[in-house]
Nucleic acid binder design. Sequence first.
DNA 1: GTCTATATGTTGATAGAC
DNA 2: GTCTATCAACATATAGAC
Lengths: 195, 195
Amino acid sequence: MAKQSQVIARERVLEAAERLFAGRGYAAVTLRDIGQAVGIKHASLYYHFPRGKEELYVEVTARRMQRYREGLERAIASARNGWYERLEAAANWMLAQPTMYLGRMMQSDMPAISDEAAEQLRKIVYSSLLQPLVAIFQNALQDNPEKLARSATYAGMFLSLIEGIDNLPASYVQGSKQELVKIMLDMLSNGIVGK
Amino acid sequence: MAKQSQVIARERVLEAAERLFAGRGYAAVTLRDIGQAVGIKHASLYYHFPRGKEELYVEVTARRMQRYREGLERAIASARNGWYERLEAAANWMLAQPTMYLGRMMQSDMPAISDEAAEQLRKIVYSSLLQPLVAIFQNALQDNPEKLARSATYAGMFLSLIEGIDNLPASYVQGSKQELVKIMLDMLSNGIVGK
DNA sequence: GTCTATATGTTGATAGAC
DNA sequence: GTCTATCAACATATAGAC
C-alpha cells in the first residue's frame, strides 16, 4: 500500500486499537487483530509504536479515559443544579456509553501489563471516573462534615452500582436501565428498607 | 512418581486448579502451572480431565461457587434475625473470603470459554451469590409489594457494592472494610443525602 | 497414573528489503 | 510506512511407552 501521512496512519492505528482493546480487553486482542482492522501487517505497527503491544494499550486507554472524563463532566454540567439531577445525568450518560468493563480492566488487563504501566493507568482510570462524581457528593454534603469526608467513598459506591447495572444478567434486572437508575437514586436518597 | 489413588490424584489436581484459577483467572493459568503445582507433567492432567483446560475450569469453578454459597448461607443463618444484621453478616463474610474477582470472571473468563460452558457457569455463579441475598431482601420487604418485587435488583446492587469495596484502590477508601460495610448499610437504610 | 516426545498453532517481536 | 520472512517462546493437545 502507498505511504500515508504519518499522523493519519498513526491515528488510524490508535482508533482501531482503542475499539478492540475496549471491547475485548488486553489479552484477547492480538497485534494481528489490530493490523487487520487497519489494513496493514502487524509488523508495521512497530513503526508507530516501537515498544509494542503494551505501549499501544497504555496510550489508547489513557486517551479513552480522558475523553470519557470530558464527556462525563459535560453531562453533569448540563444537568440542573441539584445533586439528584446531576447524579441522574451522570448515570444515564455512563450507561449510554459502551460498557466500560472496569472489572476486567482492573482485574485482568492491569495484571497483564508491567507494574509501572498498570499503576499509571489505574490512577488515570480512577481519577477520570471518580473525580467528577466526588465533586457532586462534596457539593451535596456540604452541611454534613461527617458525610462530606466520605465523598470519595460514596462516589466509589455510585460507580460500583453503575458497573453493576451494566454487568448483571438481564434475568436479574427487570426493567430498563433508566428505571434502574431511578431505583438506584431512590436508594441513595432514602435508603431501601428504612431502619 | 509412583501410581496414586485415582481419587486422591484427581482431588489434588482440582484443588491446585481451583486455587490458581481463582487467583489469576482462566487465561493467565496454564496447564503447566497446574501440573507444576501438583507435581506432575501437564500432559498427565488429560488422564483425569480428558477434555482439557476448559473442562477443568468449569468443574472447579462450579465447585467453588457451590461451596461459596454454602458458606454465605451459613453466615447469614448464624446472624440475628433482622435484615440489617443479616446483610452485615453476609457482607463481612464475603469480604473475609479471598477476592471473588467477579468482574474478571464475567468479563474475561466467560468470554474465553465456549458459549455453552459460559452460560452454564453464569447461572451457577449468579444463583450462588444472589439467591441468599435475595432471600434477605424478600424477608425485609414483605410489607412493601412495590419494593418486594425488586428484591433481586436490590440484591444485585448489594453484590455490586461488595465487589466495589474489594476493587477500589486503597487511596479512595479510607477506613477498614468493616467500617465500609457500616457505611454501606447505613446508606441502604437511610440513604446518603436525603431528598 | 505419570512419563517422554511430538504435533500444531499462536503470539510478540526483530531484521531488512522496498 | 509497509512489506516479507523469520524467530523464540509458549500454548493446548495427542500418542504411546512404562
